[in-house]
Design a binder for these strands. Structure first.
Lengths: 233, 233
DNA sequence: AACCAGTAATTGGTTAACCAATATTAAGCA
DNA sequence: TGCTTAATATTGGTTAACCAATTACTGGTT
């Protein structure tokens, strides 16, 4: 074990984050209830001893999460169903950070399997055209010896679009790139066997064409097996 | 049909959103590639004819999505795997808005079913204690004639925690409250039959105790049936 | 006493100026 | 010629001041 590994990553706690914690504290302690107006920005920044920009940043972020709603020239009110606020912020400030890799992969497997099922059931003729285009783009990259990560991912996204479930698509867009950031060396699908992955893509597409959800799901499972077996590495 | 229904909700396109669109355009058109530094804030705000705050807001939002990374006193660089940027922003600015209700419900069904499976397999003794506490809290509300929406939701969240999959839990936290906002009158689980929902909760808990994933999933399906049959209303 | 109009204070929205850290350039030295 | 170093320009960070819309208040009227 090298000494270097004993260093922890430095966490730069930005001012906005500290303010968010304080506001969260106010909400979770019940001093601020849904519907309440929270103190005006000027008062807050004076009380906290920081510039108003920071307070505004904090409020923006909270608004982003749907915890507060700010009405121009009027005030900012607590909107949330308490739980979202608390739980969403318990994982600290960013919701999607700090997830363990295994959960990420497991979740992707779930999402992809269900998505491809729906896609097989609901795909239209236009969807098939888009899928073929995406597959061709990926094939072109592979035949040029490239990894084609973007094209690979795009194929999966097209499947999500064919599923006609906009939420599932959004969730996949949240989860999948997160995997890539941890896993950049690898391509989206499997371990360094581009041609194998290409064939698997073709198999999946075929089952979608045939509108066979069960086979499509199985093919997707097999396709993602490479990545999920990697989880213990 | 009342005339009032012909009005569309007014969409206030905030300045930051317009700027985001322009930057998105730059990225998707390839003028800005991953790794490139984008123009300094002053230059941008001058070019766009707005204050620097707006430009900063836009950059913050993009950073939020993981599309750019801003280095203090140095510059802002495009970080993304292009696709996230494009697709994530195609649903306009906010990722979670504009979803159709049916997709939302369908997705929740998927997430809850898979989550309860994992929970049944992985739950610890401590998890069971938490689940019982949550159930008791819900029971107390119901017996007082209340809806107990928060307690209801909390039971489901505890299940997600027992699944030991942090990503699934986060996704459920994203999806479920969104349903509630469209569906406030109803409680989380079913249609106005609090005692029935309570019994169903007990059944689910029992199967989790028994570590029987299949029965747990079935019970959850039955439990959520009320809501999913509502989808055509 | 209740209500309305007009004014003053307060609100978030927006802009401009200032600051410290960084990157760049140019000059000086070996 | 190549490297070091100092001066300068540029960057995002931060604060303070200004603006227009809203709200609260006061005084007068009915």
């Amino acid at each position: 074990m090298e000494v270097i590994n004993n260093f922890r990553e430095i966490v730069v706690e930005k001012p906005a984050d500290k303010i968010i914690k304080q506001i969260k504290q106010l909400i979770s302690s019940g001093q601020l209830q849904p519907g309440d107006k929270l103190p005006p920005e000027r008062q807050l920044c004076e009380k906290l001893g920081v510039g108003r920009s920071y307070v505004r940043d904090a409020i923006r972020k909270l608004e982003f999460y749907g915890i507060v709603k700010t009405l121009p020239q009027s005030g900012t009110v607590v909107a949330g169903l308490g739980i979202t606020a608390l739980e969403g912020l318990i994982t600290d400030v960013l919701m999607l950070e700090g997830h363990d890799f295994q959960s990420l992969i497991e979740t992707r497997l779930i999402l992809e399997k269900q998505t491809v099922r729906l896609a097989a059931m609901r795909r239209t003729a236009d969807d098939l055209i888009d899928l073929e285009k995406a597959l061709d783009a990926y094939r072109a990259k592979v035949e040029n010896g490239k990894q084609g990560i973007d094209e690979d991912l795009m194929f999966h996204i097209r499947i999500a679009e064919a599923s006609k479930n906009s939420v599932l698509k959004s969730l996949m867009l949240i989860v999948t790139p997160d995997i890539l950031t941890h896993f950049t060396e690898q391509n989206v699908c499997g371990g360094g066997k581009p041609y194998g992955a290409l064939e698997e893509h073709m198999t999946i597409l075929k089952h979608i064409q045939d509108q066979d959800p069960d086979k499509a799901e199985l093919a997707m499972s097999a396709h993602l097996k490479g990545i999920s077996s990697f989880k213990n590495a």
